[in-house]
Every structure is written in C-alpha cells, then in structure tokens.
C-alpha cells in the first residue's frame, strides 16, 4: 500500500457541551480518492475545519506527510500542502476570476512590500510566473476564457470550478473538497467526476465530502462514514454500502 499522506489520530472537537467530533481516526494514502460521507450534522465539515486549522482540536493529532499540522495556523497548513474548497462557495467575489487564482499562489511566492515598491527584476519575474500559472490552472479546470470577469458573475458550476483552481494554485499534496457537486445537474456532476480523476492522475490526493452517495461510491477508493461525530465505518465502497451500521445511520432504524 502507498505511503500514508494524511493521518488523523483520535481527533475530538467539543463546542461547549456538544461533542461534534468524538475520537475520529482515519488515514488517507498518497494518490487515493478518499470519501467522507454521513448524514447532515454528522461532523464532516467540522472535521474539515479541524484539518485546515480553522478550529483548534479538543484532543487528537493530525499529521500530513509525517509532520504534525494540528495547532498550526491555516496559512501554515496550506504551505504544508493542504488546500480546500468550501461547501457554500466562498470566492473573493469582487476580484476577477484570474485574481482569485492568483491569491492562491500567495503561499508559494515571496515578494513583499520592498520588492513591490522597488519593482526589481525578480519581483516582476515572479509576478509573471504567478500570472502564467494561474492562467494554466483556469485552463485546467475549464475556465479558459473567463479570467477577466468578476468572480461573482460566474455561473454556479463555474464558481465551484474556480474554487478548485484557486485551491490548486497553492500546489497542494492533498485537496479537500467540501461537497463539490452540491447543486449541480447530472451532466455537470459527471464532468466534475472526470475532473477529480484527472486531478488524481496529476498526483493530487483527494479528500471528498459528498452527499451524492452514487458519486462517492463510483469515484472513491475508500470511504469513511461519520454519524454523530463518530466514525462508524471505513473501507471500500462495496463493504461500506453493506455495513449494517451505515444502513442504520442513513435509514434511521436500528441495525437488524
């Protein structure tokens, strides 16, 4: 089996008396598409927020590529190679499509105030490289000719694509997608599925939260199921689909 890229060990997150995540452990292998499913309120997005440094953990550890990332600030986690998209699209609405992607290059570039003021050759070269790479990424996700418009003028599906391009601009090893096909029609969903496979071929490991069970089952190598903040199952899609605990969680009945 390939090397472990992400290792989550015993992660818990409590908000006051509410336990949103309870001792969740999982690991994602390099090059895998790993699905995270579960009923509404199961703690999927909370787990994402813990992974990306938005929430501090109540307990547990998170390692990315062998290095601990829990307790780090979000921008440091991005620098370590972990990028994400959002369930409710959160673009920089008043910036152009291209600029949104260019912001994503921030973590991989250096020019500061001084370079900007002096406009030295290195700064200009870097700016050009940011520009070119961002155009490439727009092309890659299928937004080739839409770079100049404002992000808020894109169609819904294109906004989802832009979020992925912006996340890719940070050169992630692991890309976490929070319900990337929510609200899309079947043909758009198929296109996104193809994009995910293309991403994996490009060497990016994917962590996918999704409600669309069919998409998850068709795409993912392994799946974990969360329910009330606990991991109740993990394995290949076929195994998980037949797991009585999973069926109970989704159908709301006791396992036979």
């Amino acid at each position: 089996m390939a090397a472990q890229l992400l290792r989550v060990v015993g992660v818990s997150k409590r908000f006051g008396g509410l336990s949103a995540l309870d001792d969740v452990s999982l690991s994602v292998a390099q090059g895998e598409i790993y699905g995270l499913i579960g009923p509404n309120g199961a703690g999927k997005t909370t787990l994402f927020n813990c992974l990306t440094g938005l929430y501090s953990l109540s307990a547990g550890e998170i390692h990315l590529g062998g290095a601990a990332i829990h307790g780090h600030k979000p921008h440091q986690i991005v620098a370590a190679g972990f990028a994400r998209t959002f369930q409710n699209i959160r673009l920089f609405a008043n910036m152009t499509v291209l600029e949104n992607v260019m912001v994503g290059r921030h973590a991989r570039t250096r020019a500061g105030v001084l370079g900007a003021v002096l406009r030295c050759a290195r700064t200009r070269g870097e700016e050009r490289a940011i520009h070119d790479r961002s155009r490439e990424l727009l092309d890659y996700v299928g937004l080739k000719h839409k770079g100049r418009g404002l992000a808020c003028h894109l169609s819904y599906g294109d906004q989802r694509r832009l979020e992925i391009a912006r996340a890719l601009a940070t050169d992630p090893q692991l890309l976490a997608l929070d319900e990337p096909v929510a609200g899309m029609n079947p043909s758009e969903r198929r296109e996104m599925g193809a994009l995910f496979l293309k991403l994996r071929e490009g060497g990016v490991t994917l962590l996918l939260i999704e409600h669309d069970v069919k998409l998850v089952m068709g795409l993912c190598d392994r799946v974990a199921v969360l329910d009330y903040g606990r991991k109740i199952a993990e394995g290949t899609p076929e195994n998980v689909r037949q797991d009585p605990a999973v069926i109970a969680a989704y159908l709301g009945s006791e396992a036979p």
Partner: peptide, 29 residues
Amino acid sequence: LLVERTRLGRAMRATAQSREVAELMGVNV
C-alpha cells in the same frame, strides 16, 4: 498600483473580503 498590481495588494484585497478564506488560501493574514 501597489493594491491593484502586486502580490501584496492582492493579498490585502483578499483579506479585506474575507480574512478567513484568505488565510485558508495560504495568505499570512
């Protein structure tokens, strides 16, 4: 020019729109 055309300016505009998202995209807010 600084705000519209440079890496720092972009980061400033992104941070102004959403500090949280800017940080999650790798900007040291």
